[in-house]
Design a protein around this nucleic acid. Structure first.
Lengths: 221, 221
DNA sequence: CGGAAGGGGTGTAATTTTACACCTTCGGGA
DNA sequence: TCCCGAAGGTGTAAAATTACACCCCTTCCG
């Protein structure tokens, strides 16, 4: 959730001015409504998608119970860490909120990678950083029980928004998918947090009342 | 576990002949005994390690209950997908069996990335492929119960060794860490497989007797 | 305006897994 | 040669989580 200095934005800054101008001139923005697919698994990789606004969820499968890979926020290039493995996208990406995406032509982007070594090194560093944050995220979640995982997610959102009252870009089923527990687990744990006076929640609106205890649950779950 | 055409070996083939000769001339092989750390979390990134022989486990933490990231086999560059995120290694790597590693100087390697665009594109593709296989592995495991996860691991090893009798490079605690269940879960499930006549096992020696049923368990766990 | 669908929620029972205790065997080191 | 530690193993109980059933409310569409 920490978008500072590791975003796709930053690696694009490694382009030369004229390259950046050319890339942005050839790019176009697209808007997606909450719930729409931004990227569909199996489609061929013609474009890269830089998220400008909103929140997007990366999903592995296309089954009803799709597995959540990660949440993406403004500045990120969607699915960047696998974009060069095959010619087809191996995951889907769904807009969690209304979102705006900058569509960047893959071939133009690749041409810059081939001829601008500073840019390709910045891109390699960017991919490495995305991987590391992905591993951190999943491994932190993997070692927690359901209460800890939910608390951890709420703490991360509070940190990201920088305030204790915020609107989650996720419904309860989304939360369940992201942290890897059932919807009922999420609902029961959320009820427990409310009953204990740790949070207030009304649908997606969340207010954290006792940050210390939430952190304790997150750390020891 | 599929080492075909996605290994670090293959991306190194993208180097020009004289670059490859120079890289290999400056590299040296190191041997590690089973149980030794090949890479220790926190050490600075001066070298990359190409696994030539044996099996290595990538671990996230340095706690006693370290979390398993992935298993690595000959041809892989250890921890390649995060090697360019920071100046220190963010994970440890432990030799599961006696292993031989080619130690490649990071700065020489990076210099080739900067001046040989064909090589850097091959490297980007290699990292993407490593990421994708990592995601596939973890997401397949994540959706299985303990019986399914153990069966899946055994099936993958059978596929990798190409025969139904093989020696696991893992003891029961290692297996537990890799698939994310307790040691007793692994032991109980292994006993069940033996009692059902699906496998024979003596320590690390495993023989698969009923591949169809093992696959069924792997697929429906 | 009514019905359907989606989302939030609760309760109970079943299943899965861990925790804990303890055992046996084997290999290595003193 | 003996002892200790590591590894493989089993049993029982507790804890965690899911499965399932069902409810209520709100919003949207016909």
């Amino acid at each position: 959730m920490d978008t500072m200095n590791t975003a796709g934005n930053v690696c694009i800054k490694a382009l030369r001015d004229e390259e950046r101008v050319e890339l942005l001139a050839s790019a176009r923005s697209l808007d997606f409504r909450a719930g729409e697919l931004v990227v569909k698994k199996g489609t061929s990789v013609n474009d890269l998608y830089l998220l400008q606004q909103g929140a997007v969820e990366l999903l592995l499968g296309d089954q009803p119970s799709k597995q959540s890979l990660m949440l993406l926020f403004p500045g990120e290039i969607i699915g960047v860490n696998c974009a060069y493995s095959t010619m087809n996208y191996r995951f889907s990406a769904k807009a969690l909120t209304d979102s705006r995406v900058l569509v960047i032509n893959y071939h133009i982007f690749s041409a810059y990678l081939e001829r601008n070594s500073e840019f390709s090194m910045a891109f390699i560093r960017y991919i490495s950083t995305v991987n590391e944050r992905f591993l951190d995220w999943h491994m932190k979640l993997a070692e927690k029980n359901s209460a800890g995982a939910l608390a951890f997610l709420l703490c991360e959102f509070e940190k990201s928004y920088g305030q204790s009252t915020f609107e989650l870009p996720l419904n309860r089923s989304d939360i369940a998918r992201v942290i890897g527990f059932s919807k009922e687990s999420v609902l029961k744990n959320m009820a427990h947090l409310r009953n204990e006076g740790i949070v207030e929640s009304t649908g997606k609106q969340v207010k954290i009342l006792d940050f210390g205890r939430l952190h304790d649950i997150a750390n020891h779950g």
